[in-house]
Design a protein around this nucleic acid. Structure first.
Lengths: 343, 343
DNA sequence: ATGAAAGCGCTAACAG
DNA sequence: CTGTTAGCGCTTTCAT
């Protein structure tokens, strides 16, 4: 059966295409009787207007484009997946579709721009993707966009939604101190400088404020271009004379791997050594012991992203950075020592 | 700056819009010099043709629509996520975009059809979603579609991509037997009858072929409308006089939860009781012990889905069901007992 | 090889 | 309130 057009419907209802168009778009300017008749015909025939035409005329597609990182094993990491969930949920209530593309970290600017232009969308949200040139071009075009979890300087030039990693680190360490730990290690990520600096600052400030020692060998960078990066870093941390009683990990995956590693060494977690993670991923409750962590509401971040983009797409202007707070999720990987400090 | 149109380019190059259109589409019928000039202008201006118009004319959108289940906690389950990854990868190489929607299990037929019609797409793949009426309508419209992991009778009426769950169950049990286990339990899923029947048949056939006993209390249904379904089922399995030495779980999440539960009881895994799972999810390598499981290449399933849909969208016809094999992934949750049988 | 012109299916300004 | 009509930006047929 041939696809019906608005003209067919108009003819069947004995009215003009305008009338049909109006009832289709719920606009006033049609008599009640006409509206009803048209609606009936539409019902009966199961007519749906051609979406391309609609978009061509409206010059809007009501879809947003999500650009995220491509990983070799999966399109998603557990973090991005939740953000996407949030974006998706919100987009549904706002009446938008979402389309996405995954790119390598080193994707060329032009390639990215092509991707953005070739998929029609009214706006784009980058998750963990950042390319200065692209941002620049987009700003020139006045094309609405937003960056989520991009680990980028928060200088107020572009709209950002980021986790408050400084605060998360600070509070993680303070929590350990409250549990009586004085010898605290840190598995820090070297993946993004911004992330590195923020977590580092939070960590150090907390040590200082809690009057705890800071020992170089206990601060280990997790270098990502080697296999088993977290295990490797943990190995180094344990290499010295004495070891920390607790370790703050810049990611739950680090914590999971570190726990697995120290367990294989015969150390008990948390009896012999405690761990606290960051982000709260799905895996974190399945490890043994389950990981105590500074969780973030990633779905909320997604919602917020979509909400903000929506405003941007409708003429709003903002370059505000939104810092998302974390909250402590106590599970089983941190031991309470005698004499925890009140803070 | 105003968006350029093909007419602007034509004017700037001093040619007709036809010429521009032809070079845009890489068609012959343009002199080399013209083509070059036009290409230069396009380069300089960074012109990109309006995609809606293109689609309007071509009557194709070069996008596929993925419909999957909506979960309250996340858009994804770990299985669907990998399938989507595969779809996405393949779509990229085939030059398609992907757009998706998540629906509740009990979504109305009409609502689903609306979702499908309102998002333009040349075809749709359902992941873990099945609605008979929708399928019927789609077939009538001759709209290309495909079902992945839908747990639906494989009667050859609709194109399907399914895991070979009969075979997986059979081999899981046989593997346990090979490791010397004779007392084998089964945490079976009651979510989909098709899935239930297939795994059940595989389980029973394997028991029979390996001459192992089948005891009713060791076969426990995991009932999904209660909290902690797997834990609950496991509890029942252990309630009787004697307990199995190994348990086959119809899902790795069951295995993860069951392991956690029996561990809390003071049982050691795999020393006191072994577990083998199904599907191989990301969590499976993070549990302790890591879960031995019958893995499936879910990304491959996605690729295959997209590939098949591509054919369907280009005039191909198939209602073939593709059964994806599983493979044993040996980790640490199964103990080898003395006197395993050679099979 | 080239360009004029007729659509594609719909929206919206405009005249009645 | 209603219908006519001129676009939206591109593809494609058909003369030239």
């Amino acid at each position: 059966m041939e696809k019906l057009t608005i003209r067919d419907i108009a003819r069947m209802a004995g009215v003009s295409t305008t009338a049909v168009s109006f009832v289709l778009n719920g606009r006033s300017g049609v008599s009640e009787s006409t509206r009803k008749r048209v609606q009936e015909i539409i019902q009966q025939t199961g007519f749906t207007p051609n979406i391309h035409t609609r978009r061509l005329n409206l010059k809007r597609s009501f879809t947003v484009h999500v650009v995220m990182r491509q990983y070799d094993y999966s399109l998603f990491n557990l973090f991005a997946m939740d953000v996407l969930t949030g974006i998706f949920r919100e987009s549904k209530t706002l009446g938008y579709s979402v389309i996405f593309t995954a790119v390598e970290t080193d994707t060329e600017c032009s390639e990215l721009m092509d991707a953005i232009h070739s998929k029609d969308a009214d706006g784009v949200v980058f998750i963990q993707v950042y390319n200065e040139k692209v941002i620049h071009l987009l700003q020139e075009e006045r094309f609405p966009f937003l960056c989520v979890d991009s680990h980028v300087p928060q200088d107020g030039t572009i709209p950002l939604i980021e986790v408050d990693y400084y605060d998360a680190s600070y509070r993680a360490v303070r929590y350990l101190a409250q549990q009586g730990h004085r010898d605290i290690g840190f598995l820090i990520s070297d993946r993004h400088m911004e992330f590195y600096h923020r977590t580092n600052a939070g960590f150090r400030d907390a040590l200082r404020d809690c009057c705890l020692p800071c020992r170089a060998p206990w601060l280990q960078r997790v270098i990502h271009n080697i296999p088993q990066p977290a295990t490797n870093a943990m190995e180094k941390m344990l290499a010295g004379q004495d070891r920390p009683t607790a370790v703050f990990c810049a990611s739950d995956t680090y914590a999971a791997n570190a726990i697995r590693y120290v367990s294989s060494l015969g150390l008990r977690v948390p009896e012999d050594i405690s761990f606290i993670g960051l982000d709260d991923l799905v895996i974190s409750e399945y490890t043994r012991p389950a990981i105590t962590t500074m969780g973030v509401d990633k779905v909320h971040m997604g919602r917020l992203a979509m909400e903000t983009l929506f405003q941007l797409m409708n003429g709003g202007e903002t370059t505000a950075v939104k810092l998302i707070p974390t909250r402590l999720i106590e599970r089983d990987s941190v031991r309470k020592l005698a004499g925890g400090m009140k803070l």
